[in-house]
């Protein structure tokens, strides 16, 4: 496998945005639930998958996962199986969804990729946290609904806006 300079730089910068959203708490949207906040830190990962393909999505996911592992926002993220592993799939899923639906309509493909990428994050993280015994199933289902739904809506809207905006300034079109 060979990584082009473009792929290295774009994954690095998207990873930086993800970390930045975490350290400034800008990536957390206060939702009144016990688990704290809904997150939009996974949006750079979704964008990486859509704009540059599965490899960039994967690497950005690793950076996002490693960061949430090293600076855990919730206790169960201190387990790499919960914080890193599920994040590997976000970008890949977003890429697959975008790639398979972009022929129909690009905007629709972005919305679907954002929504399904977000669902991947919610379901896999909470599923892993439940499987490892950090959360009882009832609690994770309620967190999944209370956090997953707003996260999904925000991710879908932001993805379509950001992809449109970024594609306008990029030197290469896909």
């Amino acid at each position: 496998m060979n990584l082009s300079v473009r792929k290295i730089v774009i994954s690095g910068i998207l990873g930086a945005i993800s970390i930045l959203l975490g350290v400034t708490r800008l990536g957390f949207i206060p939702v009144p639930t016990p688990a704290g906040h809904a997150t939009i830190m996974h949006i750079p990962v979704i964008l990486g998958g859509i704009l540059e393909g599965p490899v960039v999505g994967l690497i950005t996911g690793v950076i996002f996962g490693l960061f949430s592992f090293l600076q855990p926002g919730a206790p169960f993220f201190a387990d790499p199986l919960v914080s890193v592993l599920p994040r590997l799939f976000i970008g890949v899923v977003a890429f697959l969804v975008y790639y398979s639906t972009k022929r129909i309509n690009k905007a629709l493909a972005c919305i679907l990729a954002g929504a399904l990428g977000s669902i991947t994050n919610t379901v896999l993280v909470l599923g892993m946290a439940t499987w490892r015994g950090y959360l009882p199933p009832e609690v994770s289902i309620s967190i999944g609904v209370l956090h997953g739904v707003p996260e999904l809506v925000i991710a879908a809207i932001l993805t379509v806006i950001l992809v449109k905006g970024i594609q306008r300034i990029r030197t290469t079109e896909d």
């Binding site: 290295i8 994954s11 930086a16 970390i19 930045l20 400034t24 950076i63």
Partner: peptide, 24 residues
């Protein structure tokens, strides 16, 4: 596995956090 390139990605990410923070 392109190990050096992957580490380069990490370094870019860490360096750019502060630059983008200023931007933000």
């Amino acid at each position: 596995l392109p190990s050096q390139e992957l580490v380069m990605t990490m370094v870019i990410a860490l360096r750019f956090v502060l630059i983008l923070a200023e931007e933000l």
